[in-house]
């Protein structure tokens, strides 16, 4: 008995020293039970007291771990490294594209101040300023700073930084995040979200299409009302992505029609998740091969 307890305590100690807190706690709890059940053990209460001290201090450690900040601000040096290591534009791509990717990486690692600085520089580069602007808003909003974001937008408008087309897209982008983050109530004057109408040429302002790996479509009517369906992207060509719908998923097939507009789609890309809209541009049943009978669905991304 005491041998077993000893071995369990040793295990708990090792797990704890390795940071395996859950495992350590389980062993302590097991020991606790064993002690409680036993009739032969001398000074039971003392043992239990000692044990509950151990468990307490373990829990303290767990709390410290859990409450540690997940995105602490890093040193300049680390930020430089992150930019360098996580911008993947190939060498043929131009400097500013690489810079944009680096800045996005910073934001992804929660280094918003550093990222804002970089995006700020990119506002001056014509080919990047549109993306930079959106990312600036994203950073402010990630930090919960709506005011800076709205100030920025007002300033851009006043300075005629963007075409009215672009400005509208930027506003839609902003509204979208505000809604998603539930920040709407903090906006002093809440604006009606504007109708998103993306025309062909809007999508051609030098933006590259991100690789989309999966989408999640939300429905506000039909059999999937209120639900979100996730589908993997099997193929992508520019702003058109292809998905496979299993022949078994009759309800979904019923619900999809060419030209149907999908107003709320999450596009999962390697860098981030984007919310936007799409239009079903083709839907065909696969006639042969392993996916025979399934449907191939093309969605044209309208706005990201």
């Amino acid at each position: 008995m005491s041998k077993k307890i000893k071995s369990l305590l040793q295990q708990a100690k090792l797990y704890r020293s390795q940071g395996l807190m859950g495992e350590a706690e389980k062993k302590y709890k097991l020991v606790e039970e064993l002690i409680k059940e036993s009739d032969q053990l001398p000074n039971k209460q003392k043992l239990l007291n000692g044990l509950s001290k151990k468990i307490d201090s373990l829990n303290k450690e767990v709390k410290a771990i859990e409450s540690a900040p997940t995105t602490p601000e890093m040193s300049e040096h680390v930020n430089e490294l992150i930019k360098k290591l996580f911008s993947f534009s190939s060498k043929e791509k131009n400097e500013s594209e690489t810079a944009l990717e680096g800045a996005i990486a910073l934001a992804k690692f929660g280094q918003f101040e550093g990222a804002l600085e970089e995006f700020g520089k990119l506002l001056k580069v014509k080919s990047q300023k549109f993306s930079a602007a959106k990312n600036i808003l994203r950073c402010h909003l990630e930090m919960g700073d709506i005011e800076s974001a709205t100030d920025q937008m007002e300033k851009w408008e006043k300075d005629n930084m963007f075409s009215s087309d672009q400005l509208e897209k930027i506003t839609v982008f902003f509204d979208d995040i505000v809604d998603k983050k539930g920040l709407r109530k903090e906006l002093a004057v809440s604006k009606e979200p504007e109708e998103k109408v993306a025309s062909e040429d809007e999508l051609e302002n030098g933006e590259e299409f991100l690789d989309i790996s999966a989408v999640a479509i939300s429905f506000d009517s039909g059999p999937y009302k209120g639900e979100q369906i996730e589908l993997d992207v099997s193929f992508q060509s520019g702003n058109v992505i292809s998905l496979i719908i299993s022949s078994k998923d009759e309800a979904l097939i019923e619900n999809m029609k060419v030209d149907a507009r999908l107003d709320d789609v999450h596009f999962y890309s390697p860098v981030a998740i984007f919310r936007g809209a799409g239009i079903v541009s083709a839907m065909t049943q696969i006639k042969s091969g392993p996916k025979k009978g399934d449907y191939s669905l093309d969605i044209k991304i309208e706005s990201l």
Binding site: G19, A68, L81, L85, F109
Partner: peptide
């Protein structure tokens, strides 16, 4: 070697 850790020596971002 660059290590970006959090509480309890757990890796937060990465080691490089």
């Amino acid at each position: 070697m660059v290590s970006i850790n959090t509480e309890g020596d757990r890796t937060l971002f990465f080691d490089f």
